[in-house]
Every structure is written in C-alpha cells, then in structure tokens.
C-alpha cells in the first residue's frame, strides 16, 4: 500500500498567474492522495492574492494542506489570508497537524512556517541585543511547535511541512552567506524528534531538491523554481506497518 503525496511551494500567486497551474492540478485526483503546499502562496500576503490561491488550488478533488511563507506575511493580513484559504477548503498549518485517511493508510502532516537562524556551528545565538534574542526565540518557538505537532500525531506515515529549510543540504546553489535567512537546524532537530518519513520545504529558489536530516529523514525542497514543474509526486509505502 502506498500513500501518494504531491507537493510544491513558492507559487507566488497573483492575478497574472491564475490558470497557469490549473491544467496540471486537474490531474491530481488520478495521481495523488493529497497536495501539500510549502508556503509563499502569494506575492505580498494580501486577501485578494489569497483569493487567487483559493481559485487556483481550491476544489481539486484531493485534500490540500499548506503552511504560509514569509511572503504571505508581508502585508500583515495573515488572519484574512488564512480565512480565505480555509473557506476554500485548504487546511492551513502553523505549529499544528492533521491526519488524513488515505487508501494506503493514515497520513499525518504536521506543519509550520519555520524561520531562519542558520545551521549548526554557523547560526545565530540567543545572546546580546533584544532584537537578536527575539530573532532566535522566534526560531526556537517555531521549531518547538513543529516538534510537538509531529510527536502528537497518531498515524501510519508522518510528513513534516515547512517553508524554511530544516537542513543546509537542500540550499546548495544559494550563496552561503544567506543560509541563516533560509532555514535553521532547530527545524531538523524537531523533525528528528519524531518518526518522520519525509520533510518538505520551499523558500530556497536556487537550492537543490534532495537532502537528509542528521537523523536520516529525507528532505525535499519543493520550491517551484527548483522542481520546475507544477508539483512533484512522492510515493511512500514501506514505512507502513
């Protein structure tokens, strides 16, 4: 038995993009059990852009689960954006999780936007100015909420969904200097704290597709500029008991 997961991030919708993804999305009921969106659904996080997302990614015939990205926060309209998405039947995760009954088993998805901070040995520290402490606390809080959500799900197969990257592997291609703005090791630590089968993220447009956490969990960067197709599809099965 196999669970089929379609995923893409960083679609940055506005009126000029509506309709571009739809022909490929119409095929989803034949090839996937769920579509996961890895944040940056919009350009500026406005309610009107969220309506474009709802139009493009609503009524697909498969469940759609998303986290938000940094672009979706730009105009400080997160509650309105979330409402538009949820009214369209899209599940929005932020330090939370959901379990879906699929033909191949119970799929658990825990998600959080995540944040920057950097990776082991090259990261920001909770020290010094209040601004720096607030930055690192945001990183820690975000990762902690992901870990708790992952560990709290009762399912056959567990997937972590973030916008920011949990590992540096999938950032290869980005300038090293900006890695601390692209992800943090604490997200990887959260993913490794649970029996996670797959971690999906976006955000790093110049990164690469494949990586693993220190604990051996497969990580995939599904940012649209990286996968260069409407979505990627992953088949997971042997983890099922």
């Amino acid at each position: 038995m196999v669970i089929r997961i379609a995923a893409v991030g960083d679609v940055h919708l506005d009126e000029d993009v509506v309709g571009r993804f739809r022909p490929a999305l119409e095929e989803l009921p034949d090839c996937a059990d769920v579509l996961l969106l890895a944040g940056d659904l919009t350009r500026h996080g406005t309610e009107s852009e969220a309506r474009c997302v709802a139009q493009e990614f609503g009524d697909l015939g498969v469940p759609v689960i998303t986290v938000l990205g940094n672009h979706d926060h730009q105009c400080d309209q997160v509650p309105q954006v979330v409402k538009v998405l949820e009214d369209a039947g899209i599940t929005v995760l932020e330090g939370t999780g959901v379990v879906l009954e699929c033909s191949g088993g119970r799929l658990g998805v825990a998600g959080v936007k995540g944040f920057g901070g950097g990776f082991a040995g090259r990261c920001a520290s909770d020290f010094g100015e209040p601004e720096m402490k607030a930055f690192v606390q945001t990183t820690k809080d975000s990762a902690d909420s992901l870990g708790a959500a992952l560990r709290g799900l009762d399912c056959d197969l567990l997937v972590a969904l973030t916008h920011y990257s949990p590992v540096p592997d999938t950032l290869a291609g980005e300038p090293l200097e900006i890695y601390p703005f692209l992800g943090c090791y604490q997200l990887g630590q959260a993913i490794d704290s649970a029996p996670t089968a797959l971690a999906l993220h976006g955000h790093a447009h110049h990164g690469t597709e494949r990586g693993t956490t220190p604990g051996g969990v497969r990580v995939r960067n599904v940012a649209h500029p990286v996968i260069k197709q409407a979505y990627s599809i992953f088949h997971l099965g042997d983890h099922l008991e």
Binding site: P23, R220, Q229, Y231, F234, H235
Partner: peptide, 14 residues
C-alpha cells in the same frame, strides 16, 4: 518563466 507542466515521473521513497 517557470514551467507548470504536470510531472512525468514520481519519486519512490521506500
């Protein structure tokens, strides 16, 4: 401009 075609292959993750 990023292509938006449906994927032609899946990735099997045993």
């Amino acid at each position: 401009v990023i292509r938006t075609q449906a994927p032609s292959q899946v990735e099997e993750l045993p």
